[in-house]
Write a protein that binds this DNA or RNA. Structure first.
Lengths: 213, 213, 213, 213
DNA sequence: AATGAATGAGCGTTCATTCAT
DNA sequence: GATGAATGAACGCTCATTCAT
């Protein structure tokens, strides 16, 4: 974790009740950040949303920035962790990819606040949560790499691929589908985009004719 | 243009020298915004970077937000405009797509500040430049739609595609490639990613075998 | 009270200590406003005079304007309230008028800052404290009207008077006496002006001869 | 003139055309000041209203404050000067007083902007135009003193009056009548208030009975 | 531990004034 | 003389952070 760690959580919190407050603040913060953006949100808003006093927040977080760091450390990490499960449950590489993407869209659709915050913050640079974001991308990369390798063994996936690019190819398409959904006020079903999207990933937009040219 | 227009530029400024100052501030602002983010940037920083007094900025822009709006209205519009040229210069759909993406990566590589700002702001919601961003996406969509349709006529592109999804599939992959490049401090050549990426778009990651299953 | 009320005081402050700070700021503001005028006064000056930080003022008042509104809502209202007492304590209309004016001059002499602020703000139009000023004038009018009517019943006051004009006639004379005193640095005793002034109000400047002409 | 003088006018302006601009600015300033108050008015507003450039104002006035000083030095002085004429045209003291007040109300009704500005500024202390205001009051006092003395000789006015108080008694009533008219949006005729008001000044509000008690 | 009143640095913005043209 | 673009000091106000209770 590149030296960031969880200073507050490990040291100061021990009982269940306290830990509860830590999470209450975190969830409240995500909600508030998602609604107004990080800078437009105030500590008071978060405190009110969490049902605690302003000062209490500083018992659990070093400062306002720290809340964002913890968010990426906890909330999205947890979501990304479940992607692994999903991948493990399928047999073939293509099924794994389909499961991964379906679950990805599903989770982001279920927690819109997280989705907004994730989309906004992963596209900023010189950011507070830089380290976390790097790590999360790495997790995604690892999943994709694994799937691609297996698919290559199975003969379902091309062997001439630069895996670093494949990751961006896939994560980019998924992110953009989520992003468009968010900007459209999330009125349609996001998860149903999974299958057509996976189809594009696998087959591309070209015809056989073009491929055999 | 949904009534936004260029109120300041058109009305108040006429001579070349003045217009110069307008652009100097705009360029300075983009640089500063890209380095620190919009909210972390101050008017003083921008003024210093542009070599003018703080107050001078308000002769050319209504307020801080207005600078961002003008940026999207002028700078990125100009870049996106050149995409059209690039598309028009190629004959086949596949060549058009390749040209588009190569130029896209090239322009963003040449103006890193714009790239940063564009990536950051297009992924926020409830944004100031909402209208401009929507329009720009629409421009991109139109280009892709055109290419896809032509490709379908030519027989090079599949006929069973939902074009709305194809747009996100392509723009997402391109954006993510740019985004990764930005986060990696732009040390490698971005444009060289164009051909492998287009190959993925066209052929997907699947093998013939998989496709013919 | 036309819906203005005392939003800050009533809701947010309850203990004696806090309320103390509210009043300290209010008194400090009146002093500063009286010395330099409302617009020439700065929040920093008021804060320094009240012995609090700039930001603290905004815990008790919505903004700078709000301080002025609260001043008229609280301080002068309180002064005007005591006029009623004074009137009630006398029997005849003439004695009531004399008591009223004596007390008026007395209170304004005792609180010079309030006097300055009152004189300055009641003579500006389109003002922030417009509502309060209207109401205060109305209170004065009611008192005068009451006195005049009683005097007419008693036979001590002429029956051919337009009461609206009588109010201005009296309030104008009193105000001008105060105003002159304020501009003369308040070196002489203001209250001693009450009796000669009342005499003028009652008898006018004309002689019997003139009256009987 | 206590050392203030007319520095700009005397020295820099000579031709008729220039002097024209001086007056145009002054009239424009009065209009703007009356509408928004002195501090809320900007040099740009005044310049626009006068049809000149911002910088031009500084050729005729030392600074913003200087405009206010010149206003009292020129505009109201001129109005007060005509009061003398009015007084000279009547024979008896009472007629003189009636003429004075009628003209006073008439002039202020005719130039509402001046009235507003005059009312606002004469009731502020530590003011820029302090000297001018003192002098104007002195002019009024002299007029009243003259009238009262003549009236005393004629036997129409009481001999037991403190003239300093009589001035405030009269000027106060007149001012308040004007002030009320201004606050009521000037919808009724102000001049018609002159006769009833003079009647009050001469006879007071008391009855004979009271006077003879 | 929990509070929330108090703080004050720092921001965006305004506008009187200047001065090169 | 006349201009108006440029200036930058100064303001009102916000809000992350502290600390006495």
């Amino acid at each position: 974790m590149k030296g960031l760690g969880l200073p507050t959580e490990g040291a100061a919190i021990s009982t269940k009740a306290k830990n509860d407050k830590y999470h209450r603040i975190l969830e409240a913060a995500v909600t508030v950040f998602a609604q107004s953006g990080f800078h437009e949100s105030t500590i008071s808003q978060i405190a009110r949303a969490a049902g605690v006093a302003d000062g209490t927040i500083y018992l659990y977080f070093k400062n306002k920035d720290d809340i964002l760091v913890h968010f990426f450390n906890y909330k999205t990490r947890q979501v990304f962790a479940c992607f692994r499960e999903e991948v493990d449950q399928a047999q073939t590489a293509v099924d794994k990819l389909r499961n991964l993407i379906r679950r990805h869209l599903d989770e982001f659709q279920k927690d819109r606040f997280m989705a907004v915050l994730y989309q906004a913050e992963t596209h900023r640079i010189n950011r507070l949560a830089e380290d976390q974001i790097h790590e999360m991308h790495k997790m995604y990369l690892d999943l994709i790499a694994e799937i691609v390798e297996q698919g290559q063994v199975e003969g379902a996936i091309r062997r001439d691929l630069y895996v670093g690019l494949v990751k961006r190819y896939i994560i980019g398409g998924v992110d953009e589908v989520i992003n468009t959904w968010l900007h459209s006020d999330g009125k349609y079903d996001l998860t149903s985009m999974a299958d057509p999207l996976v189809d594009l990933f696998i087959r591309g937009i070209g015809t056989q004719q073009e491929l055999n040219r």
